[in-house]
């Protein structure tokens, strides 16, 4: 049976996993390759490696990490952070990544999605969207100063019906763009998957943002990965059912060992959802 996917995310800074210090059983909890291998052992379905510095200088280090992970871990993995041009896709995919995710660069230049999809195929292109709740168009809000890139079509902008807005820079900069319409537009351009992070729910451990995920997942024909808000086992189940997500992503919850991937999968199993449980050779 087609399974829902559980995807741990490694935040990488200067070649080290951040928030990896509490990783039980690892001699070097900051080593991205060791973390990736451990997650693979623990039945993670895919991995996301996020370069949170995304600096030009750090690119070489990130590429090395990608190469080493690809040589030792044989599950799909996505690389994100600082993917700004098609050449970045080329580098990362050549190094061994299976998919690249784009966020701000896609908002600033949506053509990037189409170009990357044309060259590498839609399923190499993940559109990462950071979204916050909004009430309509916020036109009356005098403190509201969105930065809307010039090449965003007017029909994607917020209006009275909008419930979520696209944010950039880690959820800090509003764009005036309706998240649902942006997701549909991105998929039409060629994005093969959506990585949807609720900046309201992120870090709160109070559950994923279900209305956000459900509305986008129901509107697009590609898989949607829910991100932001996981705190308990029930949250994963809710995101994959009520939230209609195809996959769930979590970072610190797994890093700190509060929950393991296996625990989540066992729980999903108990509640009747298909989850992949590998075997040991």
């Amino acid at each position: 049976m087609y399974a829902k996917r559980i995807i741990p995310c490694l935040d990488i800074k200067n070649g080290r996993v951040v928030k990896g210090t509490s990783f039980v059983g690892l001699r070097d909890a900051g080593d991205p390759v060791a973390c990736a291998r451990l997650y693979d052992e623990m039945d993670a379905d895919e991995l996301v490696l996020l370069d949170i510095m995304a600096s030009h200088e750090g690119r070489g280090t990130m590429l090395d990490i990608v190469r080493q992970v690809a040589a030792q871990v044989f599950i799909p993995f996505t690389v994100g952070g600082g993917i700004n041009r098609v050449a970045d896709f080329t580098q990362m995919l050549r190094a061994g990544a299976d998919k690249c995710s784009v966020n701000s660069a896609a908002v600033r230049s949506p053509q990037l999605i189409a170009d990357a999809a044309e060259k590498f195929g839609s399923q190499c292109v993940v559109l990462a969207i950071d979204a916050r709740r909004t009430q309509g168009s916020r036109a009356a809000d005098t403190n509201y100063h969105p930065e809307t890139p010039a090449c965003i079509p007017a029909e994607l902008l917020l209006d009275e019906t909008s419930r979520y807005e696209v944010y950039l820079n880690g959820g800090r900069v509003p764009t005036g763009i309706d998240a649902l319409r942006w997701a549909k537009y991105g998929v039409a351009l060629g994005a093969g998957e959506i990585l949807l992070t609720s900046m309201d729910a992120d870090g709160q451990k109070d559950g994923y943002e279900l209305p956000l995920t459900a509305s986008i997942s129901g509107a697009v024909s590609v898989p949607v990965i829910a991100s932001g808000g996981a705190g308990k086992l029930e949250h994963f189940y809710d995101a994959l059912t009520l939230g209609k997500a195809d996959a769930v992503l979590a970072a610190s919850l797994f890093h700190f060992g509060e929950l393991t991937v296996s625990q989540v999968k066992d729980y999903l199993h108990e509640r009747g959802l298909a989850a992949r449980q590998a075997f040991n050779n």
């Binding site: 049976m1 087609y2 996917r5 195809d246 992949r276």
Partner: peptide, 9 residues
């Protein structure tokens, strides 16, 4: 959803 993308048994 098509493509069939992910794990299946």
């Amino acid at each position: 959803k098509v493509p069939h993308m992910g794990w299946n048994s």
